[in-house]
Each structure stands twice: as structure tokens, then as C-alpha cells.
């Protein structure tokens, strides 16, 4: 029972980070029908931004500012860096290709991903860095749940990501811009004819999706410590799986898919073997797609000849 609870908390932590990342994939896909392969790299830069703030402000062992402020600043820096990169990508890598063939922006996304990876390699070298979060927030602190104690950092991650997801849902469903986002994702041309500034909506989508990825990057840094230039690839792939399993383009789908992948990974690692977590996760994706070709929450599109 204790082990099961522990794995559940692990799954929840991982899952909420994947969900944040998956939201970025899903929102962008919903609007542009583009698989933004560079999203994982945006997340990686967010993690590095958090690390930069942490280092500048004295590092985890001797922080110059209160811990809550430190963490807040780390998140803010990650949001700024990631959303800047996201919006720049949209402007220079995707917008010029918007009316091109379907595959051109896809390749451009892959190219952007390689470019950002190489840039990170040059800027930060190949060494992996560590946040040393246990020194920042002692690992003993935490909330007891039954027989286990949940580390404060994990609580922070889970609470923050759920808060963000709720805020995002409210934003999409209740605000004017959110309505515009839904309209553009439903039918871009019709939305444009109704006077919606499609370019602006797309920029906002990239901004929010990338900001969420940046937050996710700092979270992963806090929980798992290691930050390195290739971290975006696997995380991006997982988050992408999550978005697809949930039904790409659907916001609740991305959240649910993220949690599902997180749990699948945690239980596989706990009960089977960590070697095969990727195999199981990818296998899960294929099975879900075979049974429900549009993902769990995806809607069937009308096809016309």
C-alpha cells in the first residue's frame, strides 16, 4: 500500500508536468494543425532559465532571497524565456510556411528543434546541471498522506500545475480571447471572416503554450534535479504522446492524457522495470489510437470530398 501510494504520487507529479507540456502541443495543434516538435526544446530552455536565476541568486545552498521569492522568480524567468522562444519560433519558423504544404512546417519544426538543441549545447555545454532542490526545500518537509510523506516540492508541483490547468480552462471558456482561440481552432477561415485577428490568436496560443512548458521545465528541475540540453526530446515525446492519447487539439484531453501517461510510467517503473517504461508508454499510445483513432477526447471531423 505504501509503495502503491508512493508510485501514485510519482505518477501524479510526472503526469501533471506532462499535462502542462501536452497542453502546449494540443493548443498549437488545435489551431494550426501543426505538430510543434520544438516544444520540448522550449521546455528545456525554461528549465535552464530557472537554473540561471537560481545560480545568479546564490544557488540552492546559499540563497540570497527568501525561498518563496526564489521559486517565484525562477518560474517567472522560465515563463519569459520560454514564451519569447515560442513566439519567435512561430514568427520565423512557422508563419512563413503557413500556406505551404502540410509537411513543410513539420520539417521546419524538427529543424527548429535541432537548432535549439544545438544552441543549448553551445550556450550551456553538454554537462548536466542540477537544481539541488533538496537543499532549497528540505526533503523531510512535506504533507503526510496515510503511511507516506509527500515532499513539499512535489506538493508545489502538483498544486501549481492543477491551478494552471484550471486557470487555462477558465480562460479558454470564459474570456473573449479564449472564445477567439476556440473559434480559430474550430474553423480558421470562418473566424477570420468574423473579424477575429487570427495572427494575434495564434501568437497568444504560442505564448501561453510555451509559458506552460517553461513552468513545466522548472518543475522538472525542482523534482528530478537534472537539467541538460537533450532533456527536451524525451519529455517532448512523452508529452506529445499524452496529447495524442487525450485527443490532440482537446484541452481536457491533454490534461487527462498527461496524467494517464504519468501514471502509466510511474507504475511501470515501480512494478515492472524502468527499462521498458518508454516501450509501455508508446505501446499504450498505439493501442489507444487503434481503438479510438482520434484519441480519447478527440472529436470526429467531418470529411468532405
Amino acid at each position: 500500500m505504501e509503495f502503491f501510494l508512493q508510485q501514485t504520487v510519482n505518477g501524479l507529479t510526472l503526469g501533471s508536468v506532462y499535462a502542462l507540456l501536452a497542453l502546449g502541443y494540443s493548443m498549437v495543434y488545435g489551431i494550426l494543425k501543426l505538430l510543434n516538435f520544438a516544444h520540448g526544446e522550449v521546455y528545456m530552455f525554461g528549465a535552464f532559465a530557472g537554473y540561471g536565476v537560481l545560480t545568479v541568486l546564490g544557488g540552492a545552498s546559499a540563497p540570497l532571497v527568501p525561498i518563496w521569492l526564489m521559486i517565484l522568480l525562477m518560474f517567472l524567468a522560465a515563463i519569459v524565456v520560454s514564451s519569447t522562444i515560442g513566439v519567435t519560433l512561430e514568427r520565423f519558423a512557422y508563419r512563413p510556411l503557413r500556406n505551404s504544404t502540410r509537411i513543410a512546417p513539420l520539417i521546419s519544426a524538427v529543424g527548429a528543434s535541432f537548432f535549439l538543441q544545438a544552441a543549448a549545447l553551445l550556450l550551456f555545454t553538454a554537462n548536466s546541471r542540477t537544481y539541488d532542490a533538496p537543499k532549497l526545500i528540505a526533503i523531510q518537509t512535506g504533507i503526510p498522506i496515510g503511511p507516506i510523506r509527500v515532499w513539499m516540492v512535489r506538493v508545489l508541483v502538483i498544486v501549481t500545475s492543477f491551478t494552471l490547468m484550471i486557470l487555462l480552462t477558465l480562460w479558454v471558456n470564459r474570456t473573449r480571447t479564449g472564445k477567439a482561440v476556440r473559434a480559430v481552432s474550430y474553423d480558421r477561415e470562418a473566424a477570420a471572416m468574423m473579424g477575429i485577428d487570427v495572427d494575434k490568436v495564434i501568437v497568444v496560443t504560442f505564448l501561453i503554450g510555451s509559458a506552460l512548458a517553461g513552468v513545466g521545465g522548472v518543475m522538472v528541475g525542482l523534482v528530478f534535479g537534472r537539467v541538460f540540453h537533450l532533456m527536451g526530446f524525451v519529455a517532448g515525446l512523452k508529452a506529445f504522446t499524452a496529447a495524442v492519447v487525450g485527443g490532440i487539439g482537446s484541452i481536457p484531453g491533454a490534461m487527462f492524457g498527461g496524467l494517464l501517461i504519468g501514471f502509466a510510467e510511474a507504475y511501470t517503473t515501480g512494478y515492472l522495470s524502468s527499462t521498458f517504461q518508454n516501450l509501455i508508454v508508446f505501446g499504450l499510445l498505439i493501442v489507444v489510437l487503434l481503438v479510438r483513432p482520434r484519441g480519447l477526447f478527440g472529436r470526429q471531423e467531418l470529411v468532405k470530398v
Binding site: Y29, K33, L35, R102, L106, L237, F240, T241, V244, I248, L272, S273, T275, F276, N278, L279, F282, G283, L285, I286, L289, L290, P293, R294
Partner: peptide, 29 residues
């Protein structure tokens, strides 16, 4: 059953599974 991007995704993961399998074949249960 799968069309367009969904087919792309599914085949992409087929490729990923291939690499993972090859890398860990000796450790399969």
C-alpha cells in the same frame, strides 16, 4: 483507420519502439 497526422504519429512511435526494442532486446522479460 488512421489518417493524416494520426497515421504519422502512430508510425513515428513504431519507429521509436523499434529503436527501444533493439536497444533493450536482451533485457526483455
Amino acid at each position: 483507420r488512421l489518417v493524416g497526422d494520426y497515421l504519422a504519429i502512430m508510425t513515428l512511435f513504431f519507429a521509436q519502439i523499434f529503436v527501444e526494442l533493439v536497444r533493450n532486446f536482451g533485457r526483455l522479460p
